[in-house]
Write a protein that binds this DNA or RNA. Structure first.
Lengths: 131, 131, 131, 131
DNA sequence: GTGGTCTAGACCACG
DNA sequence: GTGGTCTAGACCACA
């Protein structure tokens, strides 16, 4: 039996569909909604559920496998991998993430969100990380 | 003479060059390094400075104009616009940003950054917004 | 009682399970650990020992029989065949192997192994063949 | 202008076409036939030359980019990357390669190549690495 | 049943 | 011009 990851796809969004799948499954794995050993639905099953082609799901699973989040093998269901200690992040990578965060925040302000509102969102997320 | 925005381009990065320009100029405008009325370098000037094709810069300026950050006109330097009160963001947009933030954080954790470290980054950014 | 070939299976590896079995039994036969006439464990016995489905073991035995390494028959244990002089390899096949060797070495260098280190590995193997 | 890597494809071979492309380009890069900065033919150009679909070539380029051998970007030709020092190989990886070498040699003997002949092949390759 | 590979071709994004 | 994404569907390999 496989855990249903409850994925929401927006085909008209700018980010590719396969990336949306990757992002959502990775987020669920990080946040604990998907645990090591959990089986994912088959590529064809999930494709039907989402109303997309199975190749698109297969590409997402392949990317997740390469990132080390899941194990895929012929004839068997894909499963969430028990990640060993991840490699230490390099300073350049940290700076890259910091910049992406700043750009995202700039986009939010460009869309009319007030600094106070954004600040509150960040504090909520930071709080959630301490759990 | 025009304000030099000091833009850093990485042609081998995953994000398109024109997006890098847009992101960095928008970020500077949001953070106050670029103020309403400031003139940007000409498309050809900036293209030469960055060592890229001027079409790429032109596309970036076009995108910034569409987002309402700058005014462009034939024969005159592009200038940072005096943004009127931005439209109120819709709930769906806020939720979209929240999700993008969560995905970014998941990527950071996937790269080995500890929750505590990420939390500190978020708090620093939130602090900066209160200025 | 049958010879225990001491096979190690990694179900999460990239190479299919049945190929791992084939590769390891063939290697043992070539290197002399398995000799003509030696009996292999039954399909079901080996499957239980390895913790895999017996169909997978059956497929491996079938492939080994096709390659001429073992004899299988209903109701009797599979046995290592007394290989007659093998057919002379064609030039095309030799070239194919040479290419596979070069590709493997390229992969090793891609993984960071120094040419000197790889060279030593090759010399060790060549030495072992002269026994 | 792009270097022609002179790739030979066998569509009836067991190894997937895209892997054959990856293996051959990687080998050429390791052996120096392809040097950092060299441009590869476009995916559509190479696909036509090889008589296959461009998606297959694109998949090969993507894999090579992920392995760090080439840089691919929108609108520009793929180029051989100037590889920085590769990460140190772990002991487990070395053992994995050693085993793959042994299996390959066993296959060669299974095909009728004499130990002496194989030994000579290995010595030739080891010699080539000392250049 | 599972995932993998390949072709065919549409449409989009980037430079 | 370049590469990227997606669909459609055939056929193969593995468990």
């Amino acid at each position: 039996m496989s855990t249903s990851p409850d994925i929401r796809i927006d085909v008209s969004a700018a980010t590719p569909v396969y990336r949306q799948i990757v992002d959502q499954i990775r987020t669920r794995a990080v946040e604990g909604a998907l645990r090591p050993g959990d089986a994912l639905p088959s590529v064809r099953r999930l494709a039907i559920d989402l109303g997309i082609h199975f190749n698109t799901v297969a590409e997402a699973y392949r990317a997740l496998a390469e990132e080390g989040w899941i194990d895929v093998a012929h004839g068997k269901a894909a499963r969430v991998r028990n990640r060993s200690t991840p490699p230490a992040p390099e300073a350049a990578e940290v700076e890259d993430f910091r910049q992406r965060l700043r750009h995202l925040i700039a986009e939010m302000r460009a869309q009319g969100l007030s600094p106070g509102r954004i600040s509150r969102e960040l504090l909520t997320l930071a709080e959630g990380l301490k759990r």
